[in-house]
């Protein structure tokens, strides 16, 4: 079997075509009543429950400081780096309780995160960043997956020997996504992939996310402040505010909801409006009623 003749779907999966068809689809995530506290004092998220079914794109929307990244860090098992701790609640992935698992165990189960701000290994080349994404894989698999990544992002193939820290923001985001794909995940959590990028670049990134989901069957948890963009490709969405899920529904339901339209999509009777213009209790009351 040569590297070039392998279809993208199987090249990216962690255990080849046989296992792919024999097993139930992977990539289901369930978070139950999660509470996360930083430095045993600051409660960043409280009683958060979300569910992502295999093959879905689920959007997690919320403004700055709402607790989106905290939730992703909890899922990936990297809260400890910042003195964060899961006080209560359960995270399970594909039926496995991963609440207390280490980051590398979670990666091995097939859940990868593309962190906020991309966090490339700046002094390393594009190729080396991709190698690190596939740290848990063997060399042969790496070559196949790299081919898939370059097929998704042809620009990276041209830049493969360049130091990643000097690439443009859009290219860096491509490396960050490509790097995560090198681990052969079933589940991809993306933390604000459109942050700081030009609209045309966001378009490209979103096209790839959609393709990863549709063609390669990846389950996607998409964290964004940019609600319009995210709901454009999501099946389902959650809205998080001050560490609590305040609203959830299908993308269509969210887009129709008057409050979501007003506060997250910037459409309302009185024109453009910022969240900060409205008192918090008022928003909460309306959503919870």
């Amino acid at each position: 079997m040569s590297a070039t003749s392998v279809p993208a779907e199987t090249a990216l999966s962690r255990d080849g075509p046989q296992a792919q068809t024999a097993q139930a689809r992977r990539g289901s995530l369930e978070v139950r009543n999660l509470q996360v506290v930083y430095g045993s004092a600051i409660e960043a998220i409280r009683d958060v429950s979300i569910e992502v079914e295999p093959g879905q794109i689920v959007a997690l929307l919320g403004s700055n400081g709402a607790g989106k990244s905290t939730l992703l860090k909890a899922i990936s098992g990297v809260l400890g780096e910042e003195e964060g701790k899961i006080e209560s609640g359960v995270i399970s992935y594909d039926g496995v309780d991963v609440t207390a698992r280490s980051a590398d165990e979670i990666v091995r189960l097939g859940l990868m995160q593309v962190p906020e701000g991309r966090r490339l290994f700046a002094p390393l080349s594009v190729d080396e960043n991709l190698d690190m994404g596939g740290y848990i894989a063997d060399t042969r698999t790496l070559a196949k997956r790299r081919a898939v990544v370059f097929e998704l992002f042809p620009r990276l193939a041209e830049r493969r020997r360049q130091i990643s820290g000097y690439l443009s923001g859009g290219e860096q985001q491509m490396v960050a996504i490509g790097r995560a794909l090198m681990a052969g995940p079933d589940f991809l959590a993306l933390d604000e992939p459109s942050l700081g990028l030009a609209p045309i670049v966001i378009e490209q990134i979103y096209a790839v996310i959609r393709r990863l989901n549709r063609d390669l069957g990846l389950t996607v948890l998409l964290v964004e402040q940019n609600a319009q963009r995210a709901l454009g490709i999501a099946n389902y969405g959650y809205i998080i505010e001050r560490g609590r899920i305040v609203f959830d529904g299908t993308a269509a339901q969210l887009e129709k909801n008057a409050d979501v339209r007003e506060f997250y999509l910037g459409v309302s009777g009185s024109g453009q409006k910022s969240l900060r213009d409205v008192k918090h209790y008022k928003r909460r009351k309306r959503w919870l009623s």
């Binding site: 780096e81 980051a103 590398d104 091995r108 962190p115 966090r119 290994f121 700046a122 790097r179 681990a183």
Partner: peptide, 13 residues
């Protein structure tokens, strides 16, 4: 050395 948390996210111990 470049980013310990990102390294963790790659499964590097």
């Amino acid at each position: 050395a470049a980013d310990e948390r990102a390294a963790k996210l790659m499964g590097i111990s």
